[in-house]
C-alpha cells in the first residue's frame, strides 16, 4: 500500500512529539479518573518541579487487579477505605511518615481515625461520600424516606441503581436490620427474597454514570453515589437527594503509598500539597463530594455547602464498608443468579 509512504514519516514525527526529553524528578500517580483536577497536578509540578505521571482506573477492583498482577510501579494510589483495609492487611501499603505531612491538621476530626486504618498510619482521606436516594420530584409526588419506598411495584421499571452487587445486597441488609459487614450464608438467605423482588423492579444497573438515565427521564428514582446526586442537583433542583432511613453506606477515598513505591518522598510531598486548603478547595469545586478537609470547607461558597448531596443536613448515621473477603463472590453469584432469572 502506498499509504505506508505517508504514514511512516508521520509516525516518526508523532513519536518525537510524544517522547519529550525527560529530566528531573518524577512521580507515578495511579488514581481515579476524574477525581483530581489536572490544574491541581500542574500547580504541584510548577511548585516542586516534580513531574506527575497520572495513570487512571475506574474502580477499586481495577486498581487492585492491576497492582496484584504485578503491573506498573506506582508511588501514590487512591483506593477506597475498604480496599485500603485489605491492602493494609496484605502488607501492600507502606506506612506514612507523618512528620512529612504537617497539613494533616487541616482534616476534620471525624476523618482522622477511620475504621479501616484506626491509627491513620497508612492512609490520608481524600474525599468522601455516601450512597443515597435521588428522586425526580416532578414525576414522583409520594414521600420517599428509605429503600422500602423506592423498591415498590409503583416504580417498576422507573428505577436506576448502582451496578454493584455488594451495594444492592447491603441495602437489603439494612432493611432487614442485618449487620452489613458480617455476611454469612444465613444472612444472604434472609435477603435473597428481598433482592429477588427488587431486581424485578429495576430498569437500569449503572455504576459509572447512573445520572444519565435520570437526566434522560428514562427513570424517576435512583439509588446512586452522592457525587452523582450532587451533579444532578446542580443541573436541576428537581432532583432531590435523600439519605435512606434504614441506613446509609459511606465511603472514604484515601491516598496511600504502595509498599513497592520508588519515590516515597515525592509521594509525601503530593499528599501534603493536596491537603492544603487552597488546593483542596479546587478539588471540591471540580468534584462535589464531601470534603474531609475542615480548613478547605471554610473556603467553599455557601452554594457549594448548601448542596444536600455533598453536605447532608443533620447528623445522619453513616456506615462504612469493611472488606468481606470471599463473601464478595457469594454476593456476586447471588445477584447474577437473580438477574438472569428474569
Amino acid at each position: 500500500m502506498k499509504l505506508t509512504r505517508f504514514l511512516l514519516p508521520a509516525l516518526l514525527a508523532l513519536f518525537t512529539v510524544t517522547n519529550p526529553a525527560r529530566a528531573g524528578e518524577e512521580l507515578n500517580l495511579f488514581g481515579w479518573s476524574e477525581y483530581i483536577p489536572q490544574g491541581v497536578l500542574d500547580g504541584f509540578t510548577k511548585e516542586t518541579g516534580i513531574k506527575v505521571n497520572f495513570e487512571t482506573y475506574a474502580s477499586n477492583e481495577e486498581l487492585l487487579s492491576k497492582l496484584v498482577a504485578g503491573g506498573g510501579s506506582y508511588d501514590l494510589i487512591q483506593p477506597s477505605d475498604y480496599t485500603a483495609e485489605v491492602m493494609i492487611r496484605q502488607k501492600l501499603l507502606s506506612p506514612l511518615d507523618l512528620a512529612q505531612l504537617p497539613n494533616l491538621k487541616n482534616l476534620a476530626p471525624e476523618f482522622r481515625h477511620l475504621d479501616h486504618d484506626p491509627d491513620g498510619r497508612y492512609t490520608v482521606p481524600y474525599m468522601s461520600g455516601t450512597v443515597g436516594i435521588v428522586v425526580n420530584t416532578e414525576r414522583v409526588k409520594t414521600p420517599i424516606k428509605g429503600y422500602r419506598d423506592v423498591f415498590t411495584p409503583a416504580f417498576k421499571d422507573r428505577i436506576v441503581v448502582l451496578a454493584d452487587p455488594r451495594e444492592l445486597v447491603t441495602w437489603a441488609m439494612f432493611t432487614e436490620k442485618l449487620p452489613i459487614n458480617h455476611v454469612t450464608p444465613e444472612s444472604l438467605a434472609r435477603v435473597r427474597p428481598v433482592v429477588a423482588e427488587w431486581v424485578k423492579l429495576i430498569k437500569v444497573f449503572d455504576s459509572d454514570s447512573p445520572k444519565t438515565a435520570l437526566l434522560n427521564g428514562d427513570v424517576d428514582v435512583g439509588v446512586v453515589w452522592s457525587g452523582e446526586a450532587a451533579i444532578l442537583w446542580n443541573e436541576n433542583r428537581k432532583f432531590q437527594y435523600i439519605l435512606p432511613a434504614e441506613g446509609v453506606p459511606q465511603f472514604v477515598d484515601v491516598l496511600a503509598i504502595p509498599a513497592t513505591a520508588q519515590n516515597k518522598a515525592a509521594a509525601h510531598q503530593l499528599i501534603n500539597y493536596l491537603l492544603r486548603p487552597d488546593v483542596s478547595r479546587q478539588i471540591s469545586a471540580a468534584f462535589p463530594y464531601t470534603n474531609p478537609n475542615a480548613e478547605a470547607r471554610k473556603l467553599l461558597t455557601p452554594e457549594q455547602l448548601a448542596n444536600p448531596a455533598s453536605y447532608p443536613p443533620g447528623h445522619p448515621k453513616l456506615t462504612t464498608f469493611h472488606d468481606i473477603g470471599k463473601a464478595a463472590a457469594d454476593i456476586d453469584r447471588l445477584v447474577t443468579d437473580l438477574k438472569s432469572a428474569r
Binding site: 487487579s65 454493584d164 444497573f205 449503572d206 463472590a329 456476586d332 447474577t336 438477574k339 438472569s340
Partner: peptide, 28 residues
C-alpha cells in the same frame, strides 16, 4: 449489555468480567 441493556441481564462476558472486577475471584 451494560450500557444499552442497563446491565439487567448478564451475558457470559459480563460474568467473566465480574469475577475479576467485582467478585475478586480470579480462579473462577
Amino acid at each position: 449489555t451494560d450500557l444499552m441493556g442497563g446491565a439487567r441481564v448478564p451475558l457470559i462476558g459480563n460474568v467473566i468480567q465480574n469475577q475479576f472486577l467485582v467478585a475478586r475471584d480470579w480462579p473462577f
